[in-house]
Design a protein around this nucleic acid. Sequence first.
DNA 1: CATTTAGTGAACGTTGCGTTCACTATCAAG
DNA 2: CTTGATAGTGAACGCAACGTTCACTAAATG
Lengths: 197, 197
Amino acid sequence: MTESTPGRRRGHELENAIFEATLEELSEVGYANLRMESVAARARAGKASLYKRWPSRAHLVRAAVRHRGATRDMPFAPTGDVRADLERVMHRIAAFQEGPDGEAIRGYVGELTAASDGEELRDDIERPRVRMVTEIFEAGIAAGVLRPEALTPRLVNLAPSLMTHYFLTRGEPAPQEVVDEILDMVVMPLIAEPGRG
Amino acid sequence: MTESTPGRRRGHELENAIFEATLEELSEVGYANLRMESVAARARAGKASLYKRWPSRAHLVRAAVRHRGATRDMPFAPTGDVRADLERVMHRIAAFQEGPDGEAIRGYVGELTAASDGEELRDDIERPRVRMVTEIFEAGIAAGVLRPEALTPRLVNLAPSLMTHYFLTRGEPAPQEVVDEILDMVVMPLIAEPGRG
DNA sequence: CATTTAGTGAACGTTGCGTTCACTATCAAG
DNA sequence: CTTGATAGTGAACGCAACGTTCACTAAATG
């Protein structure tokens, strides 16, 4: 922590400051209004330092989000109560969407093209979700309350996809009632072992 | 049709020319790269004429898409074969997404905020879909192949939502295999009368 | 024909882009 | 401790598009 009055930072110290500035700007003004100049000013850095590292706003944002993801690790232990576990994951997704990650996703979507090199940011955000839901499903199958055939990408991704769809088209994370509806009318009926839970 | 060499158009004639130019630009360069100046040039109009009518790119695009919607009407007659009917609707959605409507949705999403006045464009695009799927469901219920409880907004919107989610996160409409998966693994199992189709 | 209405096109100041450059702080080697 | 290489700063640049303004002109009205 050689900070206090940083005469001039470099390397990772500077990089982290830029990431933090980026995430704060994202939260405050959103992706569409994110200005490289504002990020630079907020990080007390020169624009050149940004462009030296990332060729575009999209790259910067992606790096910042990925950095944040690496920072806050989020272990998830399934309890065996599948519905409750899924609800927890969905709440976690909603919490993400309210912060800089949500804005990043929105920006990513806005700039996406069929030809776009995309993939990366989406994967960064999708992968941990898939991991969590897969664990939940596996626990449910082990407990005999979930149909083994439910463990398929389409169904594992279903709840997260519907959360994302809501967020993207409404501008805010799905409220509790929507979470309940998704679980009770769509997801659980598809995956639950008939005659149980 | 008083066109040919329009010395100077006004009113609806000019407006339509602007809409057409907007839709063409949308298709060609996408929402993110849509320039007011290009639209004006393409329509052989002054920028002032655009700003006199619509305060922003978002408003212009919305008006153009709505105009297009009003123009091409699209009757849809359910055959009673629910799966086939739904597949037809999904193909229709995919076709939309490949044109200017897809770009408009993408742009709308990119600029959306929780505080945003949104609603309108989403409704314009969602409403006809809901209408079509509702008709399909009603026909299926009448034919006894669909559970009457399936006629609920969440389930009516399910297939369109998943199409939209795919398009937004991948940058291109869902391919046939994804359409099939959505129908066979998600939608049909939820709505079909048990023991039938 | 005279008047009102509406569109044109060029110019304007502004903002943010992405780049460049002279300067300077930091670091590692001798 | 000095010296040179490395990396960051901040101001300036030209550019593109913004959204606005204005003098001019074509079309519609009567």
